[in-house]
């Protein structure tokens, strides 16, 4: 494998890891506050549709992004209502949200555009265009660093840079602010937070809303940057891979970055079987690569390679008085 192939491979790794990273951070906020969220997939899907739909109607990708975030937030509100206010089962609520998004997106797409559950193809201002960083063209001919800068670091859409910046931001919010401390506390011991006079319900709603926001960006990236338009079920299990990455990362922001990059690499390799064959000399089946994130998560969950300990109050609705 030559250097250019490696750069190309890493480039598509970054592209494929971005939605995973955003969804993984979304899950991180929610689960750190004690609300399990297996509805990441559905929120992404809804956001992917509404951002593509609105971008296609208005011609502005930013309005699309706002619509995507709004739709994801609406589903977050449903999840919050079910799992925080009415103390229902958070897992069942997540399952319902996934199906709701899977059905509604196609239903509305068919009603609005009548193209078999997809939106028209997006072009021009209705898409997030790649950004060429300064001096990228000038540096292209410099050996080693040139292609690295021009291909890998430059030339992504703004959402990719936003996703990578979200990692230190998440770390800072969770581990360096009062809000973050309280948010983590509410996922470990909500009764203690309540005793301190801080609203458990408020904190959990805030966490679920942040998750909605991040899933909204992830979905918008799928349909307006990674691809040009919405197609049925386009999230294709990414929400679950993000969930797997979250466990793999042991609910930590920086680990989440590495985990999603790793799973993004698997995705990139799946499209380039020739690269694998030339590197390790054996033909690896695509199905094995697509199952690998899930297999690795199961191994991690089983505690054979380091133990993943979830937030202690995760999944439990908080009841003020017993």
């Amino acid at each position: 494998m030559d250097y250019i192939t490696l750069i190309q491979l890493l480039d598509s790794t970054v592209r494929l890891a971005t939605p995973l990273l955003l969804a993984c951070l979304a899950g991180l906020f929610s689960e750190r506050a004690g609300v399990f969220d297996i509805g990441l997939e559905g929120k992404m899907l809804a956001a992917a549709f509404f951002s593509a739909a609105l971008a296609s109607i208005t011609g502005s990708v930013w309005i699309g992004l706002a619509a995507g975030i709004a739709s994801s937030l609406a589903l977050s509100a449903v999840h919050g209502l079910a799992s925080i206010t009415f103390r229902g089962n958070q897992l069942i609520s997540g399952v319902a949200i996934n199906f709701l998004a899977a059905g509604m997106t196609v239903l509305i797409a068919q009603d609005w555009f009548a193209q078999g559950g997809r939106t028209p193809s997006l072009f021009g201002g209705a898409r997030f265009e790649p950004i060429t960083l300064p001096f990228a063209d000038a540096m292209a001919n410099v050996p080693i660093i040139g292609p690295l800068y021009e291909e890998l670091i430059s030339g992504h859409s703004i959402l990719v840079y936003a996703a990578f910046l979200a990692v230190p931001l998440t770390w800072w919010i969770l581990f360096r602010t009062r809000f973050g401390l309280r948010l983590r506390a509410v996922g470990e011991n909500p009764a203690a937070v309540d005793t301190a006079g801080v609203s458990v319900v408020g904190l959990r709603y805030a966490a679920v809303a942040i998750a909605g926001l991040l899933c909204g960006v992830a979905g918008a990236y799928l349909s307006t940057a990674l691809q040009a338009g919405f197609v049925k079920d386009m999230s294709a299990g990414r929400g679950f891979i993000a969930l797997a990455a979250l466990i793999f990362a042991k609910w930590r922001p920086w680990y989440a970055l590495w985990a999603t990059l790793l799973f993004g690499l698997f995705g990139a390799l799946e499209t380039r079987p020739d690269v694998i064959q030339s590197v390790i000399g054996i033909k690896v089946q695509g199905q094995i690569l697509s199952a690998l994130p899930y297999l690795m998560t199961v191994v991690i969950l089983a505690g054979f390679v380091g133990k993943a300990i979830p937030p202690r109050a995760g999944g439990e609705p908080y009841v003020k008085e017993r």
Binding site: V78, A82, G88, N89, S93, A96, F99, G103, M104
Partner: peptide
């Protein structure tokens, strides 16, 4: 799928 989601939501998650 939508009806299925609503049934799960109302009978399962929003039971209370």
């Amino acid at each position: 799928v939508v009806i299925q989601a609503l049934v799960i939501l109302f009978t399962g998650a929003l039971d209370n």
